[in-house]
């Protein structure tokens, strides 16, 4: 399943599930992306649409809203770690919730 990520924080998950990371919103964590990066991002997604924009709960929702408004790709907030959402109370919950959310998008 093709996805867009915030920055490269899901490498193990991608390897495990075969998620295809098409692009990053913010390639250098903490440095606001430049207009040419954003323009290239839009080009990439026009050629090859992603199924979801993956965001961790602590990351700023604005960039995802920005990309959603321009591409229509839905946001998907994954818990990222234990305690990241209501269901992710322990490690089992974390994986259950992550898989459930991803499967929900991949229908």
């Amino acid at each position: 399943m093709p996805i867009v990520v915030y920055h490269r924080g899901w490498t193990y998950l991608n390897h495990w599930l075969g998620l295809k990371e098409l692009a990053e919103l913010e390639p250098l964590p903490g440095v606001p992306p430049t207009s040419s990066h954003l323009s290239a991002l839009l080009q990439t997604l026009k050629a090859q649409p992603a199924k979801a924009i993956i965001r961790a709960p602590y990351q700023d929702p604005r960039p995802v809203q920005w990309l959603h408004a321009r591409t229509g790709i839905a946001e998907l907030v994954l818990p990222f770690t234990v305690g990241g959402n209501e269901q992710a109370g322990d490690l089992f919950g974390l994986f259950d919730s992550t898989l459930q959310l991803l499967l929900g998008v991949n229908q």
């Binding site: 606001p32 990351q59 700023d60 920005w66 305690g83």
Partner: peptide, 22 residues
Amino acid sequence: NPHGGEHLKDLLVGQILWVGFD
């Protein structure tokens, strides 16, 4: 609260390119 720290930083540094006409 683990969520708010990013909020504070985003408020300071900002990102003018995330602005949409809406």
